[in-house]
Protein backbone atom coordinates (compact mmCIF):
# COMPACT_ATOMS: atom_id res chain seq x y z
CA UNK A 1 0.00 0.00 0.00
CA UNK A 2 2.11 2.86 -1.26
CA UNK A 3 2.31 6.01 0.81
CA UNK A 4 4.94 7.91 -1.06
CA UNK A 5 7.60 10.12 0.58
CA UNK A 6 8.66 13.35 -1.13
CA UNK A 7 11.46 13.21 -3.70
CA UNK A 8 13.67 15.72 -5.45
CA UNK A 9 15.47 15.15 -8.73
CA UNK A 10 18.60 17.33 -9.00
CA UNK A 11 19.90 17.96 -12.52
CA UNK A 12 23.56 18.17 -11.61
CA UNK A 13 25.92 17.08 -8.87
CA UNK A 14 26.24 20.57 -7.37
CA UNK A 15 22.50 20.71 -6.82
CA UNK A 16 22.55 17.22 -5.36
CA UNK A 17 25.31 18.20 -2.92
CA UNK A 18 23.40 21.32 -1.95
CA UNK A 19 20.23 19.34 -1.21
CA UNK A 20 22.15 16.71 0.76
CA UNK A 21 23.71 19.51 2.82
CA UNK A 22 20.29 20.93 3.69
CA UNK A 23 19.12 17.78 5.45
CA UNK A 24 19.81 14.09 5.10
CA UNK A 25 17.94 12.45 2.25
CA UNK A 26 17.89 8.83 1.19
CA UNK A 27 19.41 8.62 -2.28
CA UNK A 28 17.74 6.50 -4.93
CA UNK A 29 19.50 5.31 -8.05
CA UNK A 30 18.16 2.11 -9.62
CA UNK A 31 15.68 1.68 -6.79
CA UNK A 32 16.12 -2.09 -6.51
CA UNK A 33 16.68 -1.91 -2.76
CA UNK A 34 14.82 1.22 -1.78
CA UNK A 35 11.59 0.74 -3.73
CA UNK A 36 10.92 -2.53 -1.93
CA UNK A 37 10.31 -0.42 1.20
CA UNK A 38 7.93 2.06 -0.44
CA UNK A 39 4.78 0.08 0.25
CA UNK A 40 5.56 -0.01 3.96
CA UNK A 41 4.85 -3.75 3.97
CA UNK A 42 8.54 -4.66 3.96
CA UNK A 43 10.60 -2.27 6.08
CA UNK A 44 9.80 1.41 6.52
CA UNK A 45 9.77 3.88 3.67
CA UNK A 46 12.36 6.67 3.86
CA UNK A 47 11.22 10.15 4.93
CA UNK A 48 12.72 12.07 2.06
CA UNK A 49 14.33 10.85 -1.13
CA UNK A 50 16.95 12.24 -3.50
CA UNK A 51 16.73 10.90 -7.04
CA UNK A 52 20.22 10.57 -8.50
CA UNK A 53 19.12 9.18 -11.84
CA UNK A 54 19.67 12.43 -13.79
CA UNK A 55 23.24 12.99 -12.62
CA UNK A 56 25.22 12.39 -15.78
CA UNK A 57 28.45 13.05 -13.81
CA UNK A 58 27.94 9.68 -12.11
CA UNK A 59 27.77 7.62 -15.30
CA UNK A 60 30.34 5.99 -17.48
CA UNK A 61 33.13 3.42 -17.45
CA UNK A 62 36.64 4.59 -18.27
CA UNK A 63 40.27 3.53 -18.07
CA UNK A 64 42.31 6.21 -16.29
CA UNK A 65 45.90 5.94 -15.05
CA UNK A 66 45.85 2.17 -15.01
CA UNK A 67 42.62 2.15 -13.07
CA UNK A 68 39.17 1.12 -14.20
CA UNK A 69 36.78 3.87 -13.16
CA UNK A 70 33.08 3.20 -12.90
CA UNK A 71 30.53 5.90 -12.16
CA UNK A 72 28.21 5.18 -9.23
CA UNK A 73 25.22 4.97 -11.57
CA UNK A 74 26.81 2.25 -13.68
CA UNK A 75 24.32 -0.61 -13.88
CA UNK A 76 25.17 -4.30 -13.82
CA UNK A 77 23.85 -4.53 -17.38
CA UNK A 78 26.30 -1.80 -18.45
CA UNK A 79 29.14 -3.66 -16.74
CA UNK A 80 28.16 -6.87 -18.54
CA UNK A 81 27.96 -5.07 -21.91
CA UNK A 82 31.13 -3.03 -21.52
CA UNK A 83 33.95 -3.92 -23.89
CA UNK A 84 36.34 -2.12 -21.59
CA UNK A 85 35.37 -4.31 -18.64
CA UNK A 86 35.55 -7.42 -20.80
CA UNK A 87 39.11 -6.54 -21.83
CA UNK A 88 40.49 -5.16 -18.59
CA UNK A 89 38.59 -6.89 -15.77
CA UNK A 90 36.32 -9.68 -17.02
CA UNK A 91 35.74 -10.99 -13.48
CA UNK A 92 33.69 -7.86 -12.79
CA UNK A 93 31.33 -8.74 -15.63
CA UNK A 94 31.21 -12.28 -14.29
CA UNK A 95 30.15 -10.96 -10.88
CA UNK A 96 27.59 -8.58 -12.39
CA UNK A 97 26.01 -11.51 -14.22
CA UNK A 98 25.24 -13.23 -10.91
CA UNK A 99 23.15 -10.32 -9.63
CA UNK A 100 19.36 -10.90 -9.72
CA UNK A 101 18.20 -11.37 -13.27
CA UNK A 102 17.84 -9.10 -16.30
CA UNK A 103 15.36 -6.70 -14.71
CA UNK A 104 17.57 -6.11 -11.68
CA UNK A 105 20.75 -5.91 -13.76
CA UNK A 106 19.13 -3.22 -15.90
CA UNK A 107 18.39 -1.06 -12.88
CA UNK A 108 20.72 -1.98 -10.05
CA UNK A 109 23.84 0.16 -9.83
CA UNK A 110 27.32 -0.40 -8.52
CA UNK A 111 26.98 2.72 -6.36
CA UNK A 112 23.73 1.43 -4.96
CA UNK A 113 25.28 -1.91 -4.07
CA UNK A 114 28.10 -0.06 -2.29
CA UNK A 115 25.92 2.41 -0.39
CA UNK A 116 23.26 -0.12 0.55
CA UNK A 117 26.00 -1.99 2.40
CA UNK A 118 24.22 -5.33 2.54
CA UNK A 119 26.43 -8.06 4.02
CA UNK A 120 25.24 -10.12 1.04
CA UNK A 121 25.98 -7.45 -1.60
CA UNK A 122 27.15 -9.47 -4.59
CA UNK A 123 29.89 -7.20 -5.92
CA UNK A 124 31.32 -6.02 -2.61
CA UNK A 125 33.76 -8.87 -1.89
CA UNK A 126 35.16 -8.40 -5.37
CA UNK A 127 35.73 -4.68 -4.73
CA UNK A 128 37.50 -5.64 -1.50
CA UNK A 129 39.70 -8.24 -3.13
CA UNK A 130 40.60 -5.87 -5.96
CA UNK A 131 41.46 -3.11 -3.49
CA UNK A 132 39.01 -0.73 -5.07
CA UNK A 133 38.84 2.85 -3.91
CA UNK A 134 35.42 4.38 -3.43
CA UNK A 135 35.23 8.09 -4.16
CA UNK A 136 32.55 9.96 -2.28
CA UNK A 137 31.60 13.59 -2.12
CA UNK A 138 29.30 16.32 -0.88
CA UNK A 139 29.12 20.05 -0.49
CA UNK A 140 32.29 19.90 1.64
CA UNK A 141 34.30 18.28 -1.12
CA UNK A 142 35.36 14.87 -2.34
CA UNK A 143 37.40 12.15 -0.67
CA UNK A 144 38.60 8.64 -1.41
CA UNK A 145 37.89 5.69 0.86
CA UNK A 146 39.63 2.35 0.35
CA UNK A 147 37.07 -0.43 0.10
CA UNK A 148 38.36 -2.15 3.21
CA UNK A 149 37.53 0.96 5.24
CA UNK A 150 34.12 1.55 3.70
CA UNK A 151 31.76 -0.98 5.32
CA UNK A 152 32.29 -0.35 8.98
CA UNK A 153 29.42 -2.19 10.67
CA UNK A 154 26.13 -3.90 9.88
CA UNK A 155 24.61 -1.92 7.00
CA UNK A 156 26.78 1.03 7.98
CA UNK A 157 29.27 2.81 5.72
CA UNK A 158 31.96 5.41 6.14
CA UNK A 159 29.77 7.90 4.26
CA UNK A 160 28.89 11.09 6.13
CA UNK A 161 25.15 11.84 6.14
CA UNK A 162 25.59 14.53 3.47
CA UNK A 163 27.81 12.47 1.19
CA UNK A 164 27.10 10.44 -1.93
CA UNK A 165 29.03 7.64 -3.58
CA UNK A 166 30.43 9.12 -6.79
CA UNK A 167 32.57 6.49 -8.45
CA UNK A 168 34.75 3.45 -7.93
CA UNK A 169 38.35 3.13 -9.05
CA UNK A 170 39.82 -0.32 -9.41
CA UNK A 171 43.57 -0.63 -9.93
CA UNK A 172 44.46 -2.91 -12.82
CA UNK A 173 47.44 -5.09 -12.01
CA UNK A 174 49.49 -7.16 -14.42
CA UNK A 175 49.90 -10.78 -13.40
CA UNK A 176 46.92 -10.60 -11.05
CA UNK A 177 44.68 -13.61 -10.92
CA UNK A 178 41.10 -13.11 -9.70
CA UNK A 179 38.43 -15.66 -8.93
CA UNK A 180 34.83 -14.97 -7.98
CA UNK A 181 32.19 -17.36 -6.76
CA UNK A 182 28.64 -16.75 -5.55
CA UNK A 183 26.68 -19.52 -3.88
CA UNK A 184 22.93 -18.99 -3.71
CA UNK A 185 19.93 -21.25 -3.38
CA UNK A 186 19.03 -20.98 -7.05
CA UNK A 187 20.78 -19.91 -10.21
CA UNK A 188 19.05 -16.57 -10.75
CA UNK A 189 17.27 -14.07 -8.52
CA UNK A 190 19.03 -15.34 -5.43
CA UNK A 191 20.50 -13.53 -2.49
CA UNK A 192 23.85 -15.09 -1.73
CA UNK A 193 24.65 -17.60 1.01
CA UNK A 194 28.36 -17.14 0.42
CA UNK A 195 30.26 -14.83 -1.91
CA UNK A 196 33.99 -15.33 -2.31
CA UNK A 197 36.50 -13.23 -4.22
CA UNK A 198 40.18 -14.14 -4.28
CA UNK A 199 42.99 -12.18 -5.93
CA UNK A 200 46.69 -12.90 -6.01
CA UNK A 201 49.72 -11.97 -8.05
CA UNK A 202 51.89 -14.49 -9.75
CA UNK A 203 54.15 -13.93 -12.74
CA UNK A 204 54.23 -17.61 -13.61
CA UNK A 205 51.94 -20.49 -12.75
CA UNK A 206 54.72 -22.15 -10.77
CA UNK A 207 55.47 -19.03 -8.74
CA UNK A 208 54.63 -18.43 -5.16
CA UNK A 209 51.49 -16.31 -4.59
CA UNK A 210 51.95 -12.74 -3.52
CA UNK A 211 49.66 -9.86 -2.65
CA UNK A 212 46.87 -12.30 -1.77
CA UNK A 213 43.48 -10.73 -1.09
CA UNK A 214 40.54 -12.85 0.03
CA UNK A 215 37.15 -11.24 0.59
CA UNK A 216 33.85 -12.78 1.62
CA UNK A 217 30.20 -11.87 1.63
CA UNK A 218 27.27 -13.25 3.68
CA UNK A 219 29.55 -14.69 6.37
CA UNK A 220 29.65 -11.65 8.67
CA UNK A 221 27.65 -8.52 9.43
CA UNK A 222 29.35 -6.82 6.48
CA UNK A 223 31.52 -7.83 3.54
CA UNK A 224 34.93 -8.69 4.99
CA UNK A 225 38.54 -9.41 4.13
CA UNK A 226 39.80 -12.72 5.52
CA UNK A 227 43.18 -11.45 6.63
CA UNK A 228 44.46 -14.50 8.48
CA UNK A 229 43.82 -16.61 5.42
CA UNK A 230 45.46 -14.01 3.19
CA UNK A 231 48.51 -14.14 5.44
CA UNK A 232 48.49 -17.91 5.34
CA UNK A 233 48.38 -17.90 1.53
CA UNK A 234 50.94 -15.14 1.06
CA UNK A 235 54.10 -16.65 -0.35
CA UNK A 236 52.56 -20.10 -0.82
CA UNK A 237 52.27 -22.34 -3.81
CA UNK A 238 48.98 -23.90 -4.91
CA UNK A 239 49.53 -27.34 -3.39
CA UNK A 240 47.16 -29.67 -1.57
CA UNK A 241 48.84 -28.76 1.73
CA UNK A 242 48.29 -25.06 1.02
CA UNK A 243 44.66 -25.66 0.09
CA UNK A 244 44.02 -27.74 3.23
CA UNK A 245 45.67 -25.15 5.44
CA UNK A 246 43.88 -22.21 3.81
CA UNK A 247 40.53 -24.01 4.10
CA UNK A 248 41.12 -24.66 7.78
CA UNK A 249 42.30 -21.12 8.37
CA UNK A 250 39.32 -19.51 6.71
CA UNK A 251 36.89 -21.84 8.49
CA UNK A 252 38.41 -20.79 11.81
CA UNK A 253 38.57 -17.13 10.85
CA UNK A 254 34.94 -16.43 9.95
CA UNK A 255 31.90 -16.26 12.24
CA UNK A 256 28.87 -16.75 10.00
CA UNK A 257 25.37 -17.02 11.44
CA UNK A 258 22.22 -19.08 10.98
CA UNK A 259 19.54 -17.10 9.20
CA UNK A 260 16.57 -17.56 6.91
CA UNK A 261 18.83 -18.34 3.95
CA UNK A 262 21.33 -20.82 5.37
CA UNK A 263 23.21 -22.05 8.40
CA UNK A 264 26.50 -21.02 9.96
CA UNK A 265 27.90 -24.53 9.48
CA UNK A 266 27.04 -24.59 5.81
CA UNK A 267 28.50 -21.17 5.17
CA UNK A 268 31.73 -22.04 6.96
CA UNK A 269 32.10 -25.35 5.20
CA UNK A 270 31.24 -24.03 1.76
CA UNK A 271 33.58 -21.07 2.12
CA UNK A 272 36.39 -23.47 2.94
CA UNK A 273 35.51 -25.93 0.17
CA UNK A 274 35.22 -23.38 -2.62
CA UNK A 275 38.47 -21.75 -1.53
CA UNK A 276 40.01 -25.21 -1.52
CA UNK A 277 38.59 -25.81 -5.01
CA UNK A 278 40.01 -22.54 -6.35
CA UNK A 279 43.47 -23.41 -5.04
CA UNK A 280 43.12 -26.95 -6.40
CA UNK A 281 42.20 -25.61 -9.85
CA UNK A 282 45.02 -23.04 -9.72
CA UNK A 283 47.47 -25.77 -8.86
CA UNK A 284 46.09 -28.01 -11.56
CA UNK A 285 46.20 -31.15 -9.40
Amino acid sequence: MPVEPPVETPRDLAEAFRLMALSPRTPIAGGTDLMVRITGEIGSPPDQVLDLSRLEELRGIALEDGRLTLGALTTYAEIRRSGLVARSLPVLAEAAATVGAVQIQNRGTLGGNIANASPAGDTLPLLLALEAVIEVGGARGERSIPADQFWIAYRTTALAPDELVLRVRIPLVEARQVRFRKVGTRRAQAISKVVLALAWEQADRKDRWSHVRLALGSVADRPIRARSTELYLEGSRATLETADGAAETVAAEIRPIDDVRSTADYRRQVTARILHRIIRDAGGW
Binding site: G30, V49, Q103, I104, N106
Partner: peptide, 18 residues
Amino acid sequence: SVILDGDVVDSCLIPACQ
Protein backbone atom coordinates in the same frame (compact mmCIF):
# COMPACT_ATOMS: atom_id res chain seq x y z
CA SER B 1 7.80 -6.13 -16.06
CA VAL B 2 7.55 -3.34 -18.61
CA ILE B 3 9.96 -2.06 -21.23
CA LEU B 4 11.62 1.25 -20.28
CA ASP B 5 13.68 2.85 -23.05
CA GLY B 6 14.24 -0.57 -24.55
CA ASP B 7 15.21 -2.37 -21.32
CA VAL B 8 12.99 -4.75 -19.41
CA VAL B 9 12.48 -3.55 -15.83
CA ASP B 10 10.26 -4.32 -12.84
CA SER B 11 7.72 -1.49 -12.69
CA CYS B 12 7.24 -2.04 -8.95
CA LEU B 13 10.81 -0.80 -8.44
CA ILE B 14 10.61 2.34 -10.60
CA PRO B 15 9.58 5.66 -9.08
CA ALA B 16 7.42 7.82 -11.33
CA CYS B 17 9.97 10.65 -11.18
CA GLN B 18 12.42 8.48 -13.09
